[in-house]
Design a protein around this nucleic acid. Sequence first.
DNA 1: GATGAATGAGCATTCATTCAT
DNA 2: GATGAATGAATGCTCATTCAT
Lengths: 222, 222, 222, 222
Amino acid sequence: MTRSKNTEIRRAQITDALRRVMAREGYEGASIAKIAAEAGLTPGLVHYHFKNKLEILLSLLGIIIGWQEKRIERLLAAVDSKPWRQLCALIDAHLAVGREQDPEMLACWIAMSGEALRNERVRGLYSKAEAKWLEGIQEVIHRGIQAGSMETVDPPAAAAALLAVIQGYYVVSGTSRSLIPRGTAARSAKAMAKGLLLQQGGLSPLVGDPSTMDESTIMKGG
Amino acid sequence: MTRSKNTEIRRAQITDALRRVMAREGYEGASIAKIAAEAGLTPGLVHYHFKNKLEILLSLLGIIIGWQEKRIERLLAAVDSKPWRQLCALIDAHLAVGREQDPEMLACWIAMSGEALRNERVRGLYSKAEAKWLEGIQEVIHRGIQAGSMETVDPPAAAAALLAVIQGYYVVSGTSRSLIPRGTAARSAKAMAKGLLLQQGGLSPLVGDPSTMDESTIMKGG
Amino acid sequence: MTRSKNTEIRRAQITDALRRVMAREGYEGASIAKIAAEAGLTPGLVHYHFKNKLEILLSLLGIIIGWQEKRIERLLAAVDSKPWRQLCALIDAHLAVGREQDPEMLACWIAMSGEALRNERVRGLYSKAEAKWLEGIQEVIHRGIQAGSMETVDPPAAAAALLAVIQGYYVVSGTSRSLIPRGTAARSAKAMAKGLLLQQGGLSPLVGDPSTMDESTIMKGG
Amino acid sequence: MTRSKNTEIRRAQITDALRRVMAREGYEGASIAKIAAEAGLTPGLVHYHFKNKLEILLSLLGIIIGWQEKRIERLLAAVDSKPWRQLCALIDAHLAVGREQDPEMLACWIAMSGEALRNERVRGLYSKAEAKWLEGIQEVIHRGIQAGSMETVDPPAAAAALLAVIQGYYVVSGTSRSLIPRGTAARSAKAMAKGLLLQQGGLSPLVGDPSTMDESTIMKGG
DNA sequence: GATGAATGAGCATTCATTCAT
DNA sequence: GATGAATGAATGCTCATTCAT
């Protein structure tokens, strides 16, 4: 009696199984049979709980977005923290050694980017996940500007740049791990954030049209 | 008597067809039948010129690497150019509006990253392409340090960071184009390069252990 | 609730369909589509019950071995029978007119010998089937020697020779049926058994090195 | 000019290539491409010289028959030889250690038996090859009977039995080599020939209807 | 004669999905 | 809810054969 409606449990099992299989074999490679086996269920049951394979992927994306949301909320909730502190915490949350994303999720994320390219619904949710990231970063930048500790002419561009940095480290570390010296990702990301969000006097030309920029301009800035 | 060979032409046709189909449908989705149709050939002929599907992918990767190589060589050949100029040129070559990678190639590149995760031979070549990028960046940084116009404690890390930025912009612009304000990629990337390669006095703590960093330290730097 | 299994029934259907198709078209000629059609099933279902085509062949071989085993056990179980009687029964079981192997199974057996040449797993099982035959023959010869009614310097060689006779009649009758006068196989095989297992005084030189043998030696024996 | 009409050379090359490939891979496994490669030719050229794959097989069979014919003619030409000598020579020619058929031809022969089962033209020629064997054996038996050194109520059956022995040793040694003790084939075959062709007084019941035969009958014979 | 390109049918196998039980 | 059978379309690939050169 009371044990009816285990639907949610089953859906979670299946979604999580997709995550693990997809990390190993990609989305196309994650057959219903493999997902079912990974979840300890039968293929038929998978389709009882999900209309089709795409729905499982969307469910997984939804869960990832939820995690993202919670993580960022928690970080921003530390209201008393200074903006730079929060930004560094945000970067560390994604890139710091030891606290690094688990490789399974990383492979999964890269695989999803491929699906996002060609499926509108996946792209919608994937964008939403990236947008959550972006919002968090933007919020911190906004506070930094308010507090006077950050400075940029184009806050959305700066936030997008930091998002790109994080995504970029994901892809490169997933596909050619050895190219990134161990433990440098978070540190470099912070240095780059500094470049984006601390305007040094005289350096602005560098940020401007590169065609008008020459070595001497830069040297002056340095 | 003996019929003349057209293998190279056909291989080029097929490879290019894969590029176009893969941009639309991913690697798994690019069936031999679709590739053949795209190239205006029959499926059997595709296998006459390529041992299997993977070989077409590797052929495509090889071509991309060749392009990369040439592009970077050309940029670096302008020996008289100042390092910062060269670095900006490198960044522009990959990210500047107008000269942007064609979207087909971009989608293709993302799809390949997924294959690189799972297939050793693809990963090998993919890494090689990334390594070519990296070499170019490192070469410029090296010159910049020699010339005294750049400064960093960890050149390989800085180069890797810039590689990640480029890859990151690719992925984000491919999967959620609207998140990146139009025309800001190259500009932001240069600002971040500045953060990496221009050490401002007193700012080093930011680059160091974030746990020892507080707001005041950063302010001093700015 | 849970649907009942019919795998064994289906596997038997499919295995038997292979036997029939293979008799007509050989192993390579027995496509999954043909096997499925012969069994009244769909090709997909064949692969639901068998991992691949080879497994169907091995299943068929296993069944044949089982039959062999039972037939021979039954024959030998007649313990009180005299060895020569048992040997004749064994020969009759394989070669006697009327009780002859069904032609389908015979064609199947020849087709399998071709696969046994090339595939290790098939060869292993095929050998096992032949070894079962051999064991039966050897057991009877052993009893014959014990009882003093049979005589040979090399029992294993004699048993192998009788195995070859049986296999030989199979192949010849399968490939050029008219060459063997109807109804003579079992009779001739018994005469040959006599030559192997009844040592006549003075005849040994015939069995020895043929180079030392001349007509007069043989005549002495006869 | 003079070098035109190399057709026969090419046909021989191709036929011989089929023999080698078929020994390794069977008839179905011997693709035109493999045959061509083995012969050092191009696939197109194979079809210039042979209408289709079957014709190559028939050509090969024709050659084998020719060999058979010559071998047997040579043996029988030694008219002065005594019949038992000739029979032993015949057996040795096929089964004796050292002079054994080359394994390539043996595998080839087994593969052909499979094709003979289902293709009428192959079966026709295959039978013809076996018939040549048979003729040789029958001729020797005839001489033996004339000379009084051999004795049998059914010469064709005896000849067929010896053919079966030879074919049987081929198959068994091809498919499960270890079952036949090394070097015993020819010796056992001769012993069996003796059983067939030397009627010992009182033994006839064994050769007759087995249902009328009992142990005592046989013991009398021994 | 000879080459290599091209075709089209066929192959074993995989798989998302449906459905009877 | 849950199972396992069943389907049918697709996939990568092979191959005998044809043909322009």
